[in-house]
Simulated assay, not measured.
Amino acid sequence: MSRLVDADRLSAELEGASPPRLLDVRWRLNEPEGRPAYVGGHLPGAVYVDLERELARPGRPEEGRFPLPDPADLEAAARRWGLWRGDRVVVYDDNDGVAAARAWWLLRGHGIDVRVLDGGFRGWLHAGYPLARGDHAPPAGDVVLAGPGPAVATIQDAALAPRTGVLVDVRAPQHYRGQVGGLDPGAGHIPGAINIPTVTHIAPDGRLHEPARIRAALAARGVTAETAVVLYCNNGIASAHSALAFAVAGIGVRVYPGSWSQWSRSPGRPIATGATPAEAISAV
């Protein structure tokens, strides 16, 4: 299954006999409710997906901010979105694919043929294609989620990842170094992690860089297709986007969904600060 589709190709597919289903996954940390923007204008036929309520579940603080949804709940949500068995799906957002990648990662792990709109909402507008207004609530589908789910790493897997492969922190450098705090307690990174920010893989127009460029950037940090890779971020969202970029480059990974929001709330876990994997160590 391909992982990306551009606006021109998607427009042509939507005119075909068996068009893909569209999911609008607009979400930002500072604007978690994307429905108002969706209602104001979205790709024709797209259904709004609530990231925090449908692509995550309520959890205890020590689980991290956005625990993965139960498979049965995710399947029920997918049916509400109007997905049927055998449907092809395209997901998009208006934030360089970061939120859409969470949907891609979850659905692909359960056997759904899903792609991310490369360039997202901005790319669709730039290509000159039309929008629809209002809400779109299709008839419920009958999709069945199968497969083992996405490849995940536990908190202990993340702790051991630097010994068995590579642990990649995909946050901005100032968060990795512990120079800037966020919504979670403590500042810094998991000891042994290297920093390859998600934005490394994104071109100025919001599209992913070409696979060869992503592979070269990763190889320069010692990451190849043979490397065992675990990714984490603040809350398990941006790391799914890096998982998409790595997949486009032909590199499989596991994502640690609890990420820093879980690690920093786990008493006794070490915290590293500084520009290197283990420059200065303290404890949660």
Rank of each mutant, 00 (worst) to 15 (best):
G45D: 12
A101G: 11
G134W: 03
G258T: 11
G206V: 08
V248A: 10
L43Y: 01
R88K: 04
G206S: 07
E15I: 01
V144I: 14
E54L: 13
L167E: 04
A17W: 11
A78I: 08
P71N: 05
G128R: 09
A146L: 15
L74C: 08
L4A: 11
P20D: 06
R221I: 00
R21Y: 11
L231R: 02
G149L: 05
G40M: 13
N195Q: 01
N30L: 12
E62K: 00
E13R: 12
G252L: 06
I194A: 12
V253S: 05
L125G: 05
R85C: 13
A46W: 08
V229N: 07
R163C: 03
V284L: 15
V253Y: 02
R65I: 02
P138S: 00
G141D: 08
G109H: 08
E63Q: 10
G128L: 03
L117C: 05
V114N: 12
V170T: 12
D93H: 15
A158F: 01
E210D: 13
G34D: 14
D169A: 05
P270H: 07
P61S: 11
G181K: 12
D113I: 15
L29A: 07
G181V: 03
V248L: 06
R35K: 13
T200L: 08
N195P: 11
R207K: 06
P44Y: 02
I194K: 14
R265P: 05
R207Q: 02
Y92M: 11
D135F: 04
V229H: 06
D96R: 09
G34K: 09
S259V: 10
Y256P: 07
D184H: 14
A212F: 06
D135V: 15
A161C: 01
V229Y: 02
E52D: 14
R133M: 01
G120W: 04
P36E: 08
L183S: 14
G40W: 06
R26K: 06
I196H: 05
Y176V: 10
T198K: 11
T224Q: 07
R85M: 11
G252C: 10
V25L: 01
P197N: 00
R3W: 03
P130A: 01
T224W: 06
L244C: 09
S261W: 03
R108K: 12
V180F: 10
G45E: 12
S2K: 15
I271C: 07
L167P: 09
P20I: 03
P211L: 01
D142A: 12
P270S: 04
P67W: 07
A187R: 09
V39R: 06
G119K: 02
P148K: 09
G41C: 08
D94E: 06
L14A: 11
I155L: 13
R3H: 14
E31S: 11
E63M: 00
G119I: 04
G236V: 07
H42M: 06
D50H: 09
I281L: 14
V152T: 14
Q156E: 07
R57H: 10
